[in-house]
Nucleic acid binder design. Structure first.
Length: 284
DNA sequence: GAGCCTGTTCGGGC
DNA sequence: GGCCCGAACAGGCT
């Protein structure tokens, strides 16, 4: 299973680094030339040395680690970012671009493609000004209705991937939501009912957390057992009743009707759908 | 060796 | 401005 840095893996990654909550940063090693630091002023990171990680949260695909005196380290995993919580004597490996050491742990950010991003904020909580997360109470039916009403002609899959509308939803989750809606990915947003869209976005987001973040908790700690070896840390994935398990296999079958899934490029992304089950709405 | 790619941004066309 | 697409980013994997 390759990595899939969408909402649930991001939350799992947050929990992995959160192992070090309550510890203070003793040293920082960073590859400042790495693209992931393109939005971070040079020499900003040392400000974290001596500061204690007090809490953390995630919003969509972004993680925030808060250090005392209102410093917030933001990490986006991009396409290939991984975080590890390793023992104190961890030795740097290829593509490790950020290493935070505390007395008990080594927090590592490894990203070979460097589409990820690291930022540092001081002051107010940066996530509070972002659009509502599908996991939050602010994300309700009225909010989904306003999304649909403002962009009735937008393609469903393109809308689902838009991080300003559905923060955290990525390619596989978008396909899963379309499949559960019984909707082809290229129908217009305006043909959907707010109730149904709200229901399935919620179901897939909550289910992803349950099946991916919660079920892989044993990958987090203790650090000597944490999955910082090659292969990533996601061992448990959504059940075979989800499209997830079938969408990448050539000749994969729909878990509901068992007909062969179709694949193509929609909204510029590789997309899988069931030609039989996803016909509840007129094509765009 | 060629092609693919689970994320995001930017530029161009309409 | 809105929307859509393709390219670019970079390197491991099939």
């Amino acid at each position: 299973m390759s990595t899939m840095p969408e909402l649930a893996e991001v939350e799992l990654a947050r929990r992995i680094w959160a192992t070090a909550e309550g510890e203070s940063i003793s040293s920082i090693t960073s590859n400042k030339d790495a693209r992931i630091f393109r939005d971070l002023p040079a020499a900003a990171l040392p400000a974290l040395v001596g500061k204690t990680m007090t809490s953390s949260t995630h919003h969509g695909k972004r993680m925030y680690f808060t250090f005392d005196h209102d410093w917030h380290l933001e990490v986006h995993l991009g396409m290939s970012g991984k975080v590890y919580c390793a023992p104190p004597d961890y030795e740097e490996r290829k593509h490790d671009h950020l290493i935070l050491r505390t007395p008990s742990y080594t927090l590592v950010l490894n990203d070979y493609r460097m589409f990820g991003r690291v930022m540092l904020h001081e002051g107010d909580s940066p996530w509070e000004s972002l659009p509502p997360s599908p996991l939050s109470r602010r994300f309700n039916q009225a909010h989904v209705r306003s999304i649909i009403e403002r962009r009735p002609k937008k393609i469903l899959k393109g809308a689902l991937l838009d991080q300003s509308l559905f923060p955290g939803v990525g390619n596989w989750m978008a396909d899963e939501i379309c499949w559960r809606l019984g909707a082809l990915p290229d129908i217009a947003l305006g043909s959907l009912s707010p109730e149904r869209l709200y229901e399935e976005v919620k179901f897939v987001c909550k289910g992803a957390i349950k099946h991916v973040a919660d079920k892989n908790q044993d990958r987090i700690a203790p650090p000597e057992e944490a999955g910082f070896a090659a292969g990533g840390y996601v061992a448990q994935v959504p059940p075979t009743t989800w499209l997830f398990q079938h969408r990448w296999k050539k000749g994969g079958l729909c878990p509901t009707c068992h007909c062969e899934l179709e694949r193509g490029t929609i909204a510029t992304r590789t997309t899988a759908w069931c030609p039989q089950c996803q016909t509840a709405y007129p094509k765009k």
